[in-house]
């Protein structure tokens, strides 16, 4: 595959992580400044009522999946690049590339299922 594509997505994934982690900091640690709709029960952001309220929102389910995808791609592509620069055989590098891709896809599918299932559980409460 052309690495200019992978590199471009690597940069985009980094930007997505930066934005979503900024959002995480705003919601979880700067609750005073975040909109009330994100912590409707008031009090601490980590209170169970607020967690359930956020779990019901489709916005959070989508951002969890987006953050998971961006973090997995950014991290695993970075790891693959590091392995590619080691003085090891081509066969090992190729094996690592395939193994990391499969690991990334499997973790993404599992994490996506978990995010959707968590929303379903929150909706039932």
């Amino acid at each position: 595959m052309r690495h200019s594509r992978l590199w471009t997505w690597h940069i985009f994934a980094g930007l997505v992580i930066l934005i979503l982690l900024g959002l995480h900091m705003l919601i979880m640690h700067l609750a005073k400044f975040s909109p009330n709709s994100l912590n409707p029960a008031g009090g601490e952001a980590i209170d169970w009522a607020n967690v359930v309220a956020r779990g019901k929102m489709a916005f959070f389910m989508i951002t969890y999946i987006l953050l998971l995808g961006a973090a997995l791609f950014h991290g695993l592509y970075g790891l693959n690049t590091i392995i590619g620069e080691l003085n090891v055989g081509h066969g090992f590098k190729k094996f690592c590339g395939v193994a990391l891709t499969l690991l990334g896809v499997a973790l993404f599918l599992f994490g996506t299922w978990a995010a959707i299932a968590a929303r379903g559980a929150a909706m039932g409460m």
Binding site: R2, H3, S4, L6, W7, T81, G84, E85, K93, G97
Partner: peptide, 13 residues
């Protein structure tokens, strides 16, 4: 020229 450098262990390394 891109074909020669746009690969694993290429310009992005």
């Amino acid at each position: 020229r891109t074909r020669a450098v746009d690969r694993a262990s290429g310009v992005f390394s």
